[in-house]
Structures are given as C-alpha cells and as structure tokens.
C-alpha cells in the first residue's frame, strides 16, 4: 500500500518537473520572439558589418572589395607607420578638442538664458534650436559662402576692420578651425534642446527655496543648476564626442580633406581609402581603429563621469 502511494507521488513529482521545464522553455521562446525584430535588424546592419570589417582588415582586396591576399596585421602596421594616417588621427583629436567644449559651453549659455521666463522667449528657443532642422549639406553650403575668400561675409568683416583676408578653407592653419566652427554651429541646435529640457526638469521649488535663503544668481547656477544638470551634461558630452569623431559631411563639402590633409579626419580618410583608392582592407583597419578609440574614450568618460554626476 505505502509502496504504491510512494510510486504515485514519485510519478507526480516527475510530471511536475516536466511541466515546469516545458513552461520555462515556452517562456524562453516567447522572450526570443519579442527580441527577434531587434536581433534581426542588429545582425543585418551592425553585427554582420562589424565582423565583415574585422575580417576585411586582415586582407588586401581588389577594386570590387573581394579579398585577394591574407596579410595578417600588415594593414595595421602600415597605418601606424603612415604619416598621413598619423596626421589624420591628430587632426581628429584636435577637431574633437575644438568642437566639444565650445559646443557645450555655448549651448549651455544659450539654454540658461532661454530658460528665463520672459515674454517671447519661445521665439528665441525656436531660433536657438533651429540648426537641428538643417541638413549637414545645407549647412555646409551655407558656410561655404560665408567662408568664400572674396565675397564671403567673414572676409568682408575682416576687411571692414582693416585686417588681412583669410583663406578660411585653403589655408592649412585655418581650415580645421573653419570646419570646427561649422560643426559647432550645426551641433548647437541639438545640444541646446537637450540642455534646455534638462534645465526645465529641475524642480522650481529648489530655486524658490534658494531665493528665500538669500542665494544670488551665480550661487544658484553653481550650486543648483550645474549639479542638477550633470546627468544631462554627461549625456550631451558623450554624444557630442562620438559625433565629433564621426564627422564626415561637412569635411566632404567644405574641404575634401584638404588643404594638405589638414582636415582629413578619420572617417573622411576611411571613405577616401575605400572609395577613391579602393583599398578596402586598409579602410577597414582604420574603421576598427576608430571604433577602438571611440570605445576607449567612452569607457574613460563613464569612469570619470560616475564620480561627478548626480543621478536623482
């Protein structure tokens, strides 16, 4: 009698385990189904190209991009020995240095003044964020005219002040600065909008309490606004840096990487290597290096940022 009941209990136990496993399996399938769209999209547009790029970077290719000779690390070694690539990396870092801090500072300033509750402030907010709606090509052409050596607005101003005309896009010592100025102008719209959003989400009671406590404008800015804005600032800095490393459009339209490779930023250099020189292997190697640089910059930023950012 007791043996029979024990056997039944055991059977039940096995059945129970089986059902549980079946259910878990079903749950897993369901979860994967939900993830499937992003898995497919990421695979097609991200993972496969990334792996393909890594693969290509170890080969020489013909003009159609088919691999010909396996060269191992040779592509990378050649790159690091090439003065043009070194120049390209240097220009890129300089470009990041010129554009990121200035973009942030100018946008922050605009966001702070546009955050004041004044009549007609909506008009200024629209103006300040308007560059977000302008395409890279349109903005570049617009600046191309401003930089024009004879009829350009900038040189007309220089003339008015009795200064010598500058070949903004033809002088190697000015070209990178000119491209940076264009980029800053173009990025301000987005950065401004995000920072303004960050400012508006700061609780107004904090300012009122500070008012009652007798805090002045700059004290409030330093002790409340900046710390409360730090998560937003951090986000904006990260995005701006990544964007700066990936700059392509303005360079292509304004300078084509010249003069004397002064504005030959890495992405432009990759493009030229691949689609002008048909060196897909070397271009892929550059792409991998850029990927690693951006990855490292972002990791460093997160390590530093964590200490300074106050998440609520």
């Amino acid at each position: 009698m007791t043996n029979v009941t024990a056997a039944i209990a055991q059977e039940e136990q096995i059945l129970f385990e089986q059902t549980k496993r079946k259910q878990r399996y079903r749950q897993f399938i369901k979860g994967v189904l939900f993830l499937l769209p992003s898995i497919v999209l990421f695979s097609v547009f991200l993972f496969y190209p990334l792996l393909r790029t890594i693969y290509l970077s170890f080969f020489l290719t013909d003009a159609s991009g088919a691999t010909t000779v396996f060269v191992g690390w040779d592509n990378f070694v050649t790159l690091f020995q090439s003065t043009i690539f070194q120049q390209s990396v240097k220009s890129t870092f300089l470009f990041v240095l010129y554009t990121v801090p200035l973009t942030i500072i100018v946008s922050l300033f605009l966001a702070v003044i546009a955050n004041e509750k004044l009549k007609g402030i909506g008009f200024f907010r629209t103006i300040f964020s308007s560059t977000m709606g302008i395409s890279v090509a349109a903005a570049s052409v617009f600046w191309l005219y401003l930089f024009h050596p004879t009829i350009g607005f900038l040189n007309i101003i220089m003339e008015v002040f009795g200064l010598e005309k500058i070949g903004w896009l033809t002088d190697p010592s000015w070209a990178l600065i000119a491209v940076s100025a264009t980029t800053i102008w173009m990025n301000i719209g987005f950065t401004f909008l995000i920072l303004l959003g960050g400012l508006q989400s700061i609780d107004k009671y904090l300012y009122e309490s500070a008012d009652v406590d007798g805090a002045g404008y700059f004290y409030k800015l330093r002790r409340i606004t900046i710390p409360m804005l730090s998560p937003t600032l951090f986000f904006v800095v990260t995005v701006t840096i990544i964007n700066a490393f990936q700059t392509f459009g303005q360079v292509d339209i304004l300078t084509q990487g010249g003069p004397q490779n002064a504005t030959n930023l890495i992405v432009y250099s990759i493009y030229r290597e691949a689609f002008t020189n048909y060196q897909f292997g070397s271009a892929s190697a550059q792409a991998i290096i850029l990927f690693i640089i951006i990855l490292f910059m972002t990791i460093i930023q997160f390590k530093l940022g964590e200490r300074k950012v106050h998440y609520q």
């Binding site: 009671y205 500070a210 805090a215 002045g216 409340i224 106050h310």
Partner: peptide, 24 residues
C-alpha cells in the same frame, strides 16, 4: 520657508542642505 515637497537639494548631503542658506 518650508515647502510641501521639502525642496531638498538631492545632490547635497543633509549637512550641506542645512548650511546652504548660511553659505549663500
């Protein structure tokens, strides 16, 4: 003034919160 939601500064410690006005 004491506000309904207290208006404490989330990024400052209790001590800094209390001393905020005096420092200002």
């Amino acid at each position: 003034m004491v506000f309904q939601n207290y208006a404490l500064y989330p990024h400052l410690s209790v001590e800094q919160n209390i001393l905020f006005g005096l420092k200002a």
